[in-house]
Amino acid sequence: MARMLVVILMAMCSWSVSAQVTAINLKEINDEIKKRPEQYFYELKQSVNTETSPIKKARLQVILSEMAYYIDQPEYILSYVDSAQNSGVLNDYWSARAMVSQARGYYQKREGKLYLATAKVAYEKAKLVNDPLLETSAVIELILANIEIGRKDAISQNMQLAKKFISFLPDDFEKAVLLQRYTKILTGLKKYDQAIKVINDTLMIFQQEGSAHFTSVSYYHLGQAEAMRGDLRRALVAMQLSLNWAIKDNNNLNQAFTLSRMAQLQTQLGLIDEAKQSLDMALKSASNTNSSIAQVLVLRHIAEFACQYQVSECYKSYEDAIAAASHHEMIAEVRDIRKELAAVFAKDGKHKQAYETLLLSIQ
């Protein structure tokens, strides 16, 4: 679930913005995203294919790029943003919104330099538009981008702005989505207690809003934060709650992410049979999603598990993970998985294979 947290829904905030989007029913779109983001993404995608108004089509493409983040499909994020920007019909508001979405696409692709460069442009554009949600989302991406590339010294002033912006927003669905992203900042800064408090705030809002998808994601983030804090058993409880909501929602995407992470926690706690079962279920769920991130994540975790407990399947499992990441052009994942495989070769005394695999990882 890439997780890591799940990102921003930018809705109408002022008369000037709502006047620009009268041809699009944003309230209806937001209500559908709350209830069924993945299914609605494909429905809206079909309607865009038949749209004849260039302006409406470009704006819907921006919205689709944002929705693609929720369902972990960065290839759609970037392609829809490119198409919308190339249309030449986006005004300042929609252009800034597209840049924020593009930044999140690079975040999911783990392309740190492009993420930071795009987040900077997005924030500068957002400051020119009188919309609190848009500026808040942009500054959050800018902070995260600096954290991702290790520039924690560059975030102090922007952190103050983010806290201020968030404090003025009403406690509604849009704020909860922003807070989910904000918790990624807090865990990145190792402020785990603060992150857990904020995640619990999002859980309250999402459950009040009746959003099973985002409730599942929040429990996933809670499990991640508990694990980072060192409490693996509390982390596993949170992951089980995430799974329960994903099952209730019939959401294979969230099930794949959560089950894969549960398996890691179960392995760490010595629950090996349970971990194997979780991975088998995760693979089944991942095969029923269109998310390349989920599919590669599960295959990578299966390979890590196999090399510990199913040695005969170790190398093949890693090759399967590398093949899937290569197919989806996930360059950073290919690099990291090859590094892991090189370490396995070295541990097994296969130094030539280790060297060759490591060399491939840095090309």
Results as ranks from 00 to 15, higher is better:
Phe168Pro: 09
Leu169Ser: 08
Leu169Thr: 10
Leu169Tyr: 00
Phe173Asp: 04
Lys175Trp: 05
Val177Asp: 10
Val177Asn: 12
Leu179Ile: 10
Arg181Asp: 12
Tyr182Phe: 15
Tyr182Pro: 06
Lys184Glu: 13
Ile185Ser: 04
Leu186Thr: 09
Leu186Glu: 00
Thr187Asp: 02
Thr187Ile: 06
Thr187His: 00
Lys190Thr: 14
Lys191Cys: 04
Ile196Pro: 02
Lys197Leu: 06
Lys197Ile: 07
Asn200Arg: 00
Asn200Gln: 13
Asn200Phe: 03
Asp201Thr: 05
Leu203Ala: 08
Met204Val: 11
Gln207Asn: 08
Gln208Phe: 07
Ala212Phe: 09
Ser216Gly: 15
Val217Tyr: 07
Ser218Cys: 01
Ser218Thr: 10
Tyr219Val: 01
Tyr219Met: 01
Tyr219Ile: 02
Tyr220Thr: 10
Tyr220Phe: 11
His221Asn: 14
His221Cys: 14
Gly223His: 04
Gly223Gln: 00
Glu226Ala: 06
Glu226Ile: 01
Glu226Thr: 06
Ala227Lys: 09
Met228Asn: 13
Arg229Thr: 15
Asp231Trp: 05
Leu232Arg: 01
Ala235Ser: 11
Met239Arg: 11
Met239Pro: 10
Gln240Pro: 11
Gln240His: 04
Leu241Pro: 05
Ala246Pro: 11
Leu253Tyr: 03
Leu253Glu: 00
Leu253Lys: 01
Asn254Leu: 07
Gln255Ser: 08
Ala256Tyr: 03
Phe257Tyr: 09
